[in-house]
């Protein structure tokens, strides 16, 4: 059952099937709680889960308060780029979605004035910028990569998104989904990336923001929406902290 140590990027793989079937809070936390408090007559172990969830929400607020919208993540030189860049997803590399760039259209929904879908050539016609930054994974490892694309703030302004809304959500072709807070979406280094090392890292479109952990950088984006209703996320719904700021 142990994930192969050498494959830290795929450390999730052997556990996925299991994780999918079990509810994180029902089993993961409760087992920990019971082993911790086995000496006590703990009648309702859900209380521990509720406490941990409440503290995770508290940590969301603390991180939002700590977030400085003008503080830039450190950048690196091309020589410092990690090669090969680790592939990491909740599935194996062979199962990445294959998307036809010609017929691809980015869908928009929610609190957006102009919901017209975007083709890749239209996205490429917008001003492009690039960044070499460190991606930090929730597992602990990190890697330096190069991403190029449209400043997300520029795109959100262009489509008439409600910039006072609380969340920007993403639905992906690999059934992954995630969401970020609006201040992070508007950060100068938050990028709607079109160019990266290889298609397997999210072709044709992914989000890149160095101010959050790797799993908050969704790949293979098919739809972007703006909302005030908490959208959650694939890993967030399983128990990872939602804000997960760096």
């Amino acid at each position: 059952m142990k994930p192969p140590r050498s494959k830290r990027l795929s450390a999730f793989r052997p556990q996925i099937a299991r994780l999918e079937r079990r509810l994180f809070l029902k089993q993961g936390l409760s087992l920990g709680a019971l082993s911790l408090l086995s000496g006590c007559t703990l009648k309702d172990d859900d209380a521990v889960d509720r406490l941990l969830i409440a503290l995770s929400r508290f940590n969301d607020k603390m991180q939002a308060a700590l977030f400085d919208p003008s503080k830039l993540a450190p950048t690196y030189t091309e020589a410092e780029i990690t090669t090969p860049f680790p592939f990491n997803a909740y599935y194996e590399e062979k199962d990445i979605p294959r998307i036809d760039g010609e017929s691809y259209r980015l869908q928009l929904s929610g609190l957006i004035a102009d919901k017209r879908p975007w083709s890749l050539s239209e996205l490429r016609a917008l001003p492009q910028s690039s960044q070499i930054t460190r991606l930090v994974c929730v597992e602990g490892w990190s890697a330096i990569g190069n991403w190029r694309g449209v400043a997300f703030r520029h795109f959100l302004e262009r489509i008439g998104a409600d910039l006072t809304a609380r969340y920007v959500g993403f639905k992906c072709a690999d059934k992954y989904y995630s969401s970020i807070d609006m201040p992070s979406a508007l950060h100068p280094q938050t990028l709607l990336a079109l160019d990266f090392t290889d298609a397997k890292y999210g072709y044709p479109l992914r989000l890149r923001l160095p101010t959050k952990l790797g799993f908050k950088n969704p790949k293979f984006i098919g739809e972007i929406f703006v909302t005030n209703d908490y959208p959650g996320g694939y890993w967030e719904d399983k128990g990872y902290n939602w804000f997960s700021g760096s």
Binding site: Q15, F24, G28, L31, G32, L51, V138, E139
Partner: peptide, 17 residues
Amino acid sequence: LGGWLAGALAWHFAAMW
């Protein structure tokens, strides 16, 4: 402690306070 990574992180980021 924690059962898996997310549980462990939840404990870690709670007990840190």
